[in-house]
């Protein structure tokens, strides 16, 4: 019982704020009689979610696919690049400046170019998502790999460890908590990346639906899409947290750090 209650209690303040805002919003719209196309009431948005669920679900799946594939691409390429940067000074000097520079070019500029080069379809969206989420992954993982205690490296060397075994047995595991911090940031921006990719040019996805609904004054549909995007972001964020607890359980215990045995 307690186990179930604790997370609920933890979320209570956030839930409270959301409920307060929704209720205030509803009252505001009803009292001032605001037109639906200007600002739909939460109840109207809720009704749209229910009524157009088939349409919304189809576009949601498209966006989700872009997010997951782009994020996956960023994860794999980000970890490979972080490893290469850690293992080779030459690669670090050659590539790290570009990793940083890549973030100074606004994604909103790159996205239309990708459209020109690659065309419509899934691929340019995956690339936009990967481009936007790859940076926090690389930077955090490199920091993590570098954070290894020099005494720990010494210990590995006295046991016959070389650069590669130190990397695999120490640097890689040490970097995991850092990687997960990077992934949390990355997943949040991934969703934004997918929507931007769709805005620039697409025929499906929640971003596309928003762009198309607005001129038709279907504002409640725009808000419904926003609601779904938020839920998607929060759910993916929570999923990363769950994976973290499963894959690196030692990290939380280490931080909570209370010896149980003496």
């Amino acid at each position: 019982m307690k186990k179930v209650l604790v997370p609920v209690m933890e979320w209570l303040p956030a839930i409270g704020i959301v409920v307060t805002i929704l209720v205030g919003w509803e009252i505001f719209v009803r009292v001032w009689n605001i037109a639906d196309w200007l600002l739909p009431a939460p109840s109207a948005i809720g009704y749209t979610l229910y009524d157009s669920w088939g349409l919304l679900a189809g576009h949601t799946l498209v966006t989700l696919e872009e997010v997951v594939l782009g994020f996956g691409l960023a994860l794999v390429s980000g970890m490979l690049l972080a490893s290469a940067i850690t293992l080779s000074k030459t690669i670090e000097k050659a590539l790290y400046p570009f990793v940083i520079a890549s973030q100074t070019v606004p994604i909103i500029v790159i996205a239309p170019m990708l459209l020109v080069w690659i065309g419509y379809g899934l691929t340019p969206k995956i690339i936009v998502v990967a481009l936007i989420s790859f940076f926090p992954i690389v930077v955090n993982t490199v920091d993590g790999m570098r954070s290894v205690d020099s005494d720990m490296q010494k210990m590995m060397r006295t046991m016959g460890g070389n650069r590669w075994s130190i990397f695999l047995k120490v640097q890689l595991p040490v970097s995991m908590p850092y990687l997960f911090s990077g992934l949390r940031v990355a997943i949040a921006v991934s969703v934004i990346g997918a929507v931007i990719g769709e805005w620039v040019g697409s025929s499906e996805g929640l971003g596309y639906l928003m762009i198309r609904s607005k001129p038709q004054f279907q504002t409640e549909r725009v808000f419904a899409a926003i609601a779904i995007l938020s839920v998607m972001g929060i759910a993916l964020f929570a999923l990363i947290g769950l994976l973290e607890r499963l894959l690196i359980p030692w990290w939380h215990r280490e931080r909570e750090g209370r010896p149980r045995i003496s």
């Binding site: 005494d151 010494k154 210990m155 060397r157 006295t158 690196i248 990290w251 280490e254």
Partner: peptide, 17 residues
């Protein structure tokens, strides 16, 4: 010498994972 002498350093340096 590396790899042929057993060395226990001042810190225990156990790997937390």
């Amino acid at each position: 010498l590396l790899g042929s002498v057993g060395y226990m350093q001042q810190k225990d340096l156990l790997l937390p994972w």
